[in-house]
C-alpha cells in the first residue's frame, strides 16, 4: 500500500490472541510447524486428533481456533469433524455406555436396549447427559455373541441384558459415582 492507514481496522491480532488461548501450546506449535507443508489442509485430521486427545472432544471454540490458526475454512473443519465417527463434538460423560449392534445382539433385541437407554438418559447416540454422567454410543460386534444382547459400560460387559435391567445397571453407576467399576457384572464371570 503506497500510503498506509493510520488507524488499523485489522482484527487479526485479536482473533489470533483469542484462538491461542483456546488451544494448548503443543497443538499451536504443531499447526505452525505444518503450515508451510504442501497440501497443508491434509493435516486437519491429525490436528483434530490432537485436540480430541487433549480435551476429550472437539469443542466449538477449539475448532474455530484450528480454523483460524491453520487457515482452513471453519465449514471444512466442522464438515470433517462431523463426518468421522471417532470425532466427538461433546465432552464425554464419566461413563461411556456402548450398545452392541452386531448381528447376534441385533437379532436378540439390541434395538430395544438402545431405545430404553435413550428414554432413560434422554440422549441419542453420540450425546452426553446434561449432568455429565453418561455418554451413549453404539458399536459393532463386541465379540461376546454368546451373551447377546450385550452392552458395555466403560470396560465392563453386561449380557444378556433385558430392557428392564437397564435401569438396574444405570442405578449402580449413579449410586457409586466414585467407584472405579462395580464388582460383579450381571452374568459375566
Amino acid at each position: 500500500m503506497s500510503h498506509c492507514c493510520q488507524v488499523s481496522t485489522d482484527n487479526w491480532e485479536d482473533v489470533k490472541a483469542k484462538c491461542l488461548t483456546a488451544l494448548p501450546e503443543d497443538i499451536v506449535n504443531y499447526i505452525d510447524d505444518h503450515k508451510g507443508d504442501e497440501h497443508a489442509e491434509s493435516n486437519l485430521i491429525a490436528i483434530l486428533h490432537r485436540v480430541q486427545r487433549h480435551f476429550g472432544y472437539l469443542g466449538q471454540e477449539q475448532m474455530n481456533a484450528v480454523a483460524q490458526l491453520a487457515q482452513i475454512p471453519l465449514a471444512k473443519v466442522t464438515g470433517v469433524a462431523t463426518f468421522y465417527h471417532l470425532f466427538r463434538l461433546q465432552p464425554r460423560g464419566k461413563h461411556v455406555i456402548s450398545v452392541c449392534m452386531g448381528t447376534a445382539c441385533y437379532v436378540k433385541g439390541a434395538e430395544k436396549l438402545s431405545q430404553r437407554l435413550m428414554d432413560e438418559l434422554g440422549i441419542h447416540y453420540g450425546e452426553t447427559t446434561k449432568d455429565g454422567m453418561f455418554s451413549l454410543d453404539n458399536s459393532r460386534c463386541l465379540g461376546t455373541c454368546g451373551l447377546a444382547p450385550v452392552i458395555m459400560v466403560d470396560d465392563q460387559v453386561y449380557g444378556p441384558v433385558t430392557p428392564s435391567e437397564i435401569t438396574i445397571i444405570l442405578e449402580k453407576y449413579i449410586k457409586q459415582p466414585r467407584a472405579a467399576a462395580p464388582k460383579a457384572a450381571l452374568a459375566v464371570q
Binding site: P73, A75, K76, T78, G79, T82, F83
Partner: peptide, 9 residues
C-alpha cells in the same frame, strides 16, 4: 468464501 461444506455422512 468457502462458507459451505457437507456435514455428517
Amino acid at each position: 468464501v468457502q462458507n459451505l461444506s457437507q456435514h455428517g455422512r
